[in-house]
């Protein structure tokens, strides 16, 4: 069978979008990726090393971007305005009146990070030494040294798990599933750079569910003596020297605990993007109670939206590691390929 050549539009040029573009291209389709930022790569661009094996994120991303060639067309700085369809043809409108037509649309818009300032009691944006996991990762990427607001090496760094996850009051009941391992990975990285710095993790449950994640946990304890305190951070406040005072319940000790830390890192949860709501409201793509896209079938068909011709892949259907995001993107590509084959307008050349 020679491939049919159909047009597919992929919304989002992050890992899922790039991987799907490559797969679809290999299956013989022409693909246009619409990326809202200046460069493709999504959240992976701000990632230093990947858990659990410390592979360079930049290396992976470079390999993925190299695949953009031939019938893969990348349009950056593309702000999606509207999606419409007439019969089997979809029109994706972006920027000022530009439009691309396609026979299938893959939505791979990923996720946003929780807005940490909504957890007011943690003092992000108010206290000098509170940073987010994304900001810490960016420091690693840009080879910036980890220092407090006054330029000192922190004597103690505290990681706060579940910021914006498992928190109905903050609007999100779901577990973001990737923050535990991210936190442990980042904590180890700090210990490698600053062996004299004390690192503590404030967690509710440690959900080290992926392959080899538990090994990272053991490494954190055994090699780096990172301390794990089971208790969600209740509130933090600033000491006279602009260090932080953390208050939590040390649930396994059965007492409240107060700990001083020079810096606090908030492990931000994965939350739906504005685009999720837009797709839900304007185009009828089903949204789950967590705000992420709900596919056609939660077991048997995890990549087709209920709206015919629209597909979903990657973390836009819920938090996923890079490994699972890429697998999901390949799976979506096959679904799209099957859909295009079945399509009566298909012009299959045998």
């Amino acid at each position: 069978m020679r491939a049919l050549k159909k047009e597919v539009v992929i919304i989002g040029g992050g890992p899922a979008g790039l991987e799907a573009a490559d797969s679809l291209n290999k299956l013989g389709h022409a693909v246009t990726i619409l990326e809202k930022e200046e460069r493709p790569g999504g959240k992976l661009s701000n990632w230093h090393k990947l858990f659990p094996d410390n592979v360079s994120a930049d290396g992976i991303l470079k390999q993925m971007i190299q695949k953009i060639s031939g019938d893969i067309h990348l349009i950056t700085n593309a702000k999606i305005r509207k999606i419409s369809h007439e019969g089997k043809k979809y029109s994706v409108w972006f920027n000022e009146g530009q439009c691309i037509q396609a026979e299938a649309v893959l939505v791979a818009v990923g996720f946003d990070l929780f807005n940490a300032s909504l957890k007011e009691e943690y003092g992000y944006g108010i206290y000098d030494n509170v940073i987010t996991s994304a900001e810490l990762e960016s420091m690693f990427v840009n080879q910036k040294s980890l220092v407090t607001a006054t330029g000192k090496t922190p004597g103690r760094v505290a990681f706060i798990h579940c910021v914006g996850s498992r928190d109905e009051k903050a609007g999100f009941r779901h577990c973001s599933s990737m923050c535990c391992v991210t936190g442990v990975k980042q904590a180890i990285e700090i210990k490698k750079r600053l062996p004299g710095t004390d690192v503590m993790m404030f967690y509710m449950d440690l959900r080290m569910h992926g392959r080899f994640y538990e090994d990272l946990y053991l490494e954190a304890q055994e090699k780096h003596h990172i301390q794990f305190i089971r208790g969600r951070l209740s509130e933090s406040s600033e000491n006279p020297d602009s260090s932080l005072l953390l208050k939590a319940d040390d649930t396994l000790a059965g007492s409240p605990i107060k700990v001083r830390a020079d810096m606090m890192v908030l492990l931000l949860g994965f939350v739906p993007t504005d685009f999720h709501k837009k797709m839900g409201e304007e185009f009828g793509v089903e949204i789950g109670s967590d705000g992420f896209f709900s596919p056609c079938d939660s077991h048997l068909d995890t990549n087709s939206a209920k709206t015919t011709g629209i597909f979903v892949a990657g973390a836009c259907t819920g938090a996923k590691s890079l490994e699972y995001t890429l697998a999901d993107a390949r799976s979506a590509s096959l679904k799209i390929h099957e859909f295009l084959l079945r399509s009566p307008s298909s012009n299959i050349l045998n």
Partner: peptide, 21 residues
């Protein structure tokens, strides 16, 4: 009743952890 971690004596724990890591 609060555990005042920074005011507490951690030397005994350090001794034990050193001899039984």
């Amino acid at each position: 009743n609060t555990i005042e971690y920074d005011k507490n004596d951690l030397s005994l724990a350090a001794f034990v952890l050193k001899h039984e890591p």
